[in-house]
Design a protein around this nucleic acid. Sequence first.
DNA 1: AGCACA
Length: 447
Amino acid sequence: MSSVSSQPQFRLTQPPSKVLHLRNLPWECTEEELVELGKPFGKVVNTKCNVGPNRNQAFIEFADLNQAIAMISYYASSSEPAQVRGKTVYLQYSNRQEIVNNKTTADVGGNVLLVTIEGADARLVSIDVLHLVFSAFGFVHKITTFEKTAGFQALVQFSDAETASSAKNALDGRNIPSYLLPEHLGPCTLRITYSAHTDLSVKFQSHRSRDYTNANLPVAPSAIDANGMFSVGLDGKKLEPESNVLLASIENMQYAVTLDVLHMVFSSFGPVQKIAMFDKNGGLQALIQYPDVQTAVVAKEALEGHCIYDGGFCKLHLSYSRHSDLSIKVNNDRSRDYTIPNTVMMNPQPSILGQQPAATHGPPAHPYPRSSFCSNNRASSDDASAFCWMGHRWSTGTPFYACPDESQSLFATWNHATSNGPWNDADAKPWWPAAACSCNASLQTRS
DNA sequence: AGCACA
């Protein structure tokens, strides 16, 4: 009960320990990088990274106290500070004598995440946006949202604990990208823990809960309008009638937008059944058909207003078509029916929506050089390598991040493994893995 | 930029 602490929080001189405390580490510093850093001074027997509120602290434990002392004294007198990925890291003896790697209940989670959305406008975050965000890591089975004293919360159910954990690791503490939110909204931060639930009970599709595994689940009466359509948005706003077919018009088409390009872009959100392209009013338009309305809604939300290429080129404008099933007479470079057999089948995602057919895209024909992945790479005209990163992901699963930049291009990308990305501050968190990119990643990692 | 984990 004493309010006077006898120990200062940080002592100026720490007594030596074979455990060193590191801080100011770059984002997502790996265990390997820590071992690399300590190796010249002795045997690193244990590490712990992603420590602290910013996850930028770590511990390394040497086999022997002298090795820790060697490292500290080396950097105490060195003109070159200790660095990881070019970032200065600060070292000191830990106030503990060994690293405790407790796998606590918070670490061994289940397949359901408890997500708290923080921020003044948190309750304005739509369930569709949450779905989009979490779908970047794998198939989202169900979402329920509710308000508690803790604020606006959601339970997000994945197939398995691994997927849930990857989503948690990537998203905990992050802000929802502003481009996914209505313009006036302030930052919305995700705080994620594991839920004890394993299977959520969702009775209706509504603005508060969704079951993406059951296309036949009734829509909540509150979300149905007089025409019997599911047309009430989150905040009760009227939406245009949704459809499984999107009408895309492409503005500022400096670069060729081909059928394949459209297929790749729209396949990121679900299997594309049919595409028909045509010219209208001197511009290019296309109809893109998904098997279900939900997928079209997610795709529309994610892609609307975005540019296929950096620099404001090939900006997409999407609306719902009144069609529900396109009639494709012939497969050519302007129209295609991907549901007809004898195309490559490579959709490892379980067919959760029942009638959902397998996606029919294959990897691009040519592998593209790694150099084209760098962040300042500009797509060149008539060059399909603008999408090379997607092909690369598909074929290897290498983690790339897409960077929606100032122009909100979807496809400014960089190789996370070899580059800090296009942000200036090495400590800054990278942009969201764009849904387009990560949905493919999740397709890739399932088998 | 300053010590994990319940």
